[in-house]
Design a protein around this nucleic acid. Sequence first.
DNA 1: TCTGGGGTCCTAGGACCC
DNA 2: TCTGGGGTCCTAGGACCC
Length: 424
Amino acid sequence: MFALVDCNNFYVSCERAFNPSLTGKPVVVLSNNDGCFIARSDEAKALGLPMGGPAFKFRDILQKNRVRVFSANFPLYGDMSSRVMATIGDLAPEIEIYSIDEAFVDLGGFSRFGLEHHASRIRSTVRKHTGIPVSIGIGSTKTLAKAASRMAKKNPGYEGVCMLSTRKEISDALTTLKVDDIWGIGRQWNRLLETRNIRTALDYSRTPASWIRKNLHIPGIRIQEELNGHSCLPLEQVRPPKQSICTSRSFGRTVISLDELQQAVATFAGTCARKLREEGSVASMLTVFICTSPFDEPHRKYRGTRTLAMPRPSRDTISVIRTAELALASIYREGFEYKKAGVIVSGLAPASSSEREIALFTEEDTAGNDREKRLMEAMESINRRYGPAAVRIAAENDDAWKPNQAMKSAQYTTAWSDILTLSG
DNA sequence: TCTGGGGTCCTAGGACCC
DNA sequence: TCTGGGGTCCTAGGACCC
C-alpha cells in the first residue's frame, strides 16, 4: 500500500509555524513580484480567493477581510520541507519526495501496526516536530492514495487520514471524485472528457481503453489502470538525474534594452551553471527565451527562443554565460517591452563522464578545462565563506530587473541575521 | 500600474541515414 | 506507367504536475 503525505496549505503553514498570531486568520502567500496567490489558508479559500488568482484583482476582498498577505519566502519553505521530509523518513524509510510539500511512502512493512494507525502517528509526529499539519491518503496505487489524501483533507471526520481498501470504499470514493480532481487530468483533458459526459473518476475508470488511448495517449491509460487498482507508477526512492535545469524570472518592471536583458540572462545563466555543479552534471545544450507579457495586445507580443550547442559539455559559469549571450543576441528584437526571460540547460550528463571524454581532446582543451574547474572551485569556496555573490562574473547583475517582494517574512531557519529579528 | 517558477512526458514533423 | 521501408535524432509545441 502507498500513502501520500501532503502538507496542508504548505506555504501558509510555514508562515504560521513562526507567527502563531496568524492561526485562524485568512492568510495568503504570493508568487514572485507579489503577483498571484500560490497558497491560501482555509479562511482565505472561504473568502473566494482562487489559487493562481492575481492579487491586484482581489484588493478589495483582501483589505475588507484583513487578509494577511506574504511575499514568497522560498528559502524558508525549502528548509521547512527538508525538516518535514526527514521526519516522515524516520517513520517510513521507503519514501519518495514528490514535491516540496508531498511525499509518497510505501507502508508495505507496517501492516502489523495497522496502516491507519501508523499514518496517524506520522501525522502527529510531523505536527509536533515541525508545526506543519499534513493529510495522509492510503491506497493500493499512487493515484488512489492521492484521491484518498484529498478526501482526508476535505472531510474533518477522517481526522487527517483516509484509507481506501475495500472495493466499496474505492468505488464510493471514485463516485464523489470529479474527473478534473484526478491526479494527471488537467484543464484541457477535462474539457474533452466533459464532451463525452465523463464526469467522475468512476466514469473515467469505465471508459473504453481504446478511446482513452486514442485521445489521452499513454498517460491517460496509466491513470485508468491506477484508478482500477493496477499500480503503474512505482515508488521512486532515488531521484533520477535531472534532464534539464531552468532559471527564469518575470521582471519587476518592463525591460526594453538589450543591455538590461543581457544582465538578466547572464545572471540566470550563472545560476544555471551553479545548479549544474550542485547536480554533478554538465550541459551540452542551452536555450534562452525572452518574452513580453502574455496580457499585452497581440501586436506588442513577442516571444523569442533559441537553442545552441555548448562549445563542449560544461558546467563552467563563463562558458555558460558566453553561450547564453550568443543565443540572446540572435533573438533580441528592438521595440518590445520584455517582461520575462529564462535560461534552460539541457542534454545533461554526469560530470565524471565528460571528464573522461575531455581527456580524448587536445592538450590545450584539457588544460583549459582544468583551469575552468579550478576557477569555479575557487569562486564557490569564496562565496560559501563570504556570501552568495561575494565574487561573480561582471556580466551578472540583478539590480535592473529584480522582482518586487514587498511583504516578505524573515528567513527564520536559514539566515542568522533574521533569527535576531525574532528575538529582538 | 499590477497575472510565478521549475520540472517531466508525449507527439508530430522534418532532416538525415542506410 | 513510375519513386520503399525502417530507423534515429532534433525541434517545437502541448499536455500535465507541484
